[in-house]
């Protein structure tokens, strides 16, 4: 399978990427690692006339600590480099753990954090993780930079709040201070496949009680969602409250039906996986 013809532009800087997007408008697509876009192009589901390759923009690679005490991860950092990064491992180990479950080794060597997120696929693992972490996106366009909260970034099926001439420059996540536990439970048909449903449980533990719980759900709607009913039911309670709270994991979701699962089965999975994830995270 061969993609339709396109013009190839390699951006050396963020400014060059933004300028190319501005010039070509909605005929252009950004190419990062290509592991979401190229398969779509080979199936001719996407036929951009111009590809702007940002995979070599060094200013969008690597991890650093920000002045406001968070981690800023360059959007072109590969999944493997996120997993291996000492700052991520020390301060936000949950992101390393979820990233290690994306695709397979070869995919993680090419795919990038920013590319996977900007693709906006609710079946992808990282959007739910960034949502559960209350992460933010730093995006740059012709008028400069702005920050978009994860809860505002994912708008609809494969649709984000990014404008046609904007580039995700970095993703910011908090440093998890205190006694946090986490677990991502992913249910898929075969080991490397997309999640039929995924549930990320993130728990801050204080003296045997759950001070704060967060649950991010993968593939339970057109966008990643938080199971806020579960989160509210757990705050201030002990781990013995998890089983009952997890019964509310599918509340308010709009899970799709497809060849792999009906909506009802997805709701069942969300409840079971949320319970498992939270029990492991609280343990």
């Amino acid at each position: 399978m061969i993609p339709a013809s396109f013009e190839y532009v390699r951006a050396g800087t963020i400014e060059e990427a933004v300028a190319a997007l501005r010039e070509h408008g909605d005929e252009a697509k950004l190419l990062a690692g290509g592991h979401s876009l190229l398969p779509l192009m080979k199936l001719r589901l996407a036929t951009p006339e111009v590809l702007v390759d940002i995979g070599r923009v060094d200013a969008m690679k690597g991890v650093c600590e920000t002045d406001d005490g968070r981690l800023a991860i360059g959007s072109m950092t590969t999944h493997q480099d996120v997993m291996d990064d000492p700052l991520v491992r020390e301060h936000c180990g949950v992101l390393a753990e979820v990233t290690a479950m994306v695709g397979d080794a070869q995919v993680r060597h090419r795919g990038t954090l920013g590319g996977a997120l900007a693709h906006g696929d609710a079946a992808s693992d990282l959007p739910a993780a960034i949502l559960a972490l209350d992460g933010t996106f730093t995006v740059e366009g012709p008028d400069g930079r702005r920050e978009i909260a994860a809860r505002d970034f994912f708008v609809d099926y494969l649709t984000t709040a990014l404008q046609d001439d904007e580039v995700v420059v970095e993703v910011r996540v908090p440093k998890l201070d205190g006694d946090w536990g986490w677990r991502y439970e992913k249910f898929s048909r075969v080991s490397q496949a997309w999640a039929i449903v995924g549930a990320l449980g993130l728990v801050k533990r204080t003296n045997g009680t759950i001070e704060e719980a967060r649950v991010g759900l993968t593939h339970m709607g057109a966008v990643p969602v938080r199971a806020s009913a579960v989160e509210d039911a757990l705050a201030g309670n002990g781990p013995d409250a998890i089983a009952d709270a997890a019964q509310h994991a599918a509340d308010g979701t709009d899970a799709p039906s497809d060849l792999n699962a009906t909506s009802a089965f997805r709701q069942h999975l969300a409840r079971v996986l949320t319970r498992r994830a939270l029990e492991a995270a609280a343990g």
Partner: peptide, 22 residues
């Protein structure tokens, strides 16, 4: 379709699926 890995090569030392790299 970047599933099967038959096309795996090393690109700058790391394994990649060469059907999904331009």
């Amino acid at each position: 379709t970047s599933n099967c890995g038959a096309c795996t090569v090393h690109l700058d030392g790391r394994s990649v699926k060469s059907c999904t790299v331009l």
